[in-house]
């Protein structure tokens, strides 16, 4: 007897006594499975299935239990094999009748889901890339409601004014075979105060004066030549072509 067979025999014995480890059980089941594929006889005295049966007979005789024993495993296997396989997809049956027998519909389903995920991802990226950091050429204003005590501490965070992080995510199924894909939903969004165009004439006039004075200050003290005037060209007066 080879060492492997000897160990398997000892493992079967231990299993009958209820002392086999998980590893031994795994090894026995693997061997029994291979043995069953070779031949499905009622009992093979040389195989582990035979040993299992004999050991149980011995054990039952010692325990004075009824000694009738029948191995029905082969019969169960044959019954399962003989069972008709039903298709889960009516569409698949219809298409099969048109000669699409070799078409793998599960692969098609996976492809459909993957395509929809890719489309959602592309839409998400487009949505992100169309964020305009500057918003508009027009004067934009947001009421601040600034109070002295509130602000003398300075900004708590030092993000630049245009920094507007948008965190987007897709809901996904973390387990199982169910694959879902939904439109991106915004999970975190830094509060962006509602902006509106300056319509108040007094405010517009004052802002225009601020820009004008700043433009002169920049020209006189800055290093950028004509750029300050280029920034605030709108303050120039319209003239006739004549």
């Amino acid at each position: 007897m080879s060492g492997t067979k000897k160990r398997l025999t000892e493992s079967v014995s231990a299993l009958v006594d209820g002392e086999a480890s998980d590893l031994e059980l795994h090894r026995i089941l693997k061997d029994v499975d291979a043995e069953q594929h070779r031949e499905c006889t009622s009992l093979n005295d040389h195989g582990n299935r035979g040993k299992w049966s004999r050991y149980n007979l011995i054990s039952n005789s010692i325990a004075e239990a009824p000694m009738r024993f029948a191995d029905i495993s082969c019969a169960v296997s044959k019954a399962i094999d003989a069972e008709e396989t039903y298709s889960s997809s009516r569409t698949g049956t219809v298409l099969s009748s048109f000669g699409f027998n070799s078409f793998d519909f599960s692969a098609f389903g996976r492809f459909t889901i993957a395509a929809s995920v890719a489309m959602v991802a592309i839409l998400g990226v487009q949505q992100l890339s169309t964020v305009d950091p500057v918003h508009s050429k027009s004067l934009q204003v947001v009421e601040m409601g600034i109070e002295a005590g509130e602000q003398t501490r300075g900004p708590a965070i030092q993000f630049p004014a245009d920094f507007q992080p948008m965190v987007q995510a897709r809901t996904v199924n973390a387990g199982g075979k169910i694959k879902t894909s939904q439109r991106p939903v915004t999970l975190v969004k830094i509060a962006n105060p509602e902006r509106e165009l300056v319509r108040d004439q007094k405010v517009r006039a004052f802002l225009s004066e601020i820009l004008e004075i700043h433009s002169f200050n920049e020209s006189d003290n800055g290093i950028q030549g004509m750029l300050p005037l280029a920034r605030h060209l709108e303050t120039g007066e319209e003239t006739d072509t004549e």
């Binding site: 027009s138 934009q140 204003v141 004014a161 405010v203």
Partner: peptide, 8 residues
């Protein structure tokens, strides 16, 4: 008018 922040 109230305090404000604007950008051009």
């Amino acid at each position: 008018h109230p305090g404000l922040s604007a950008r051009l």
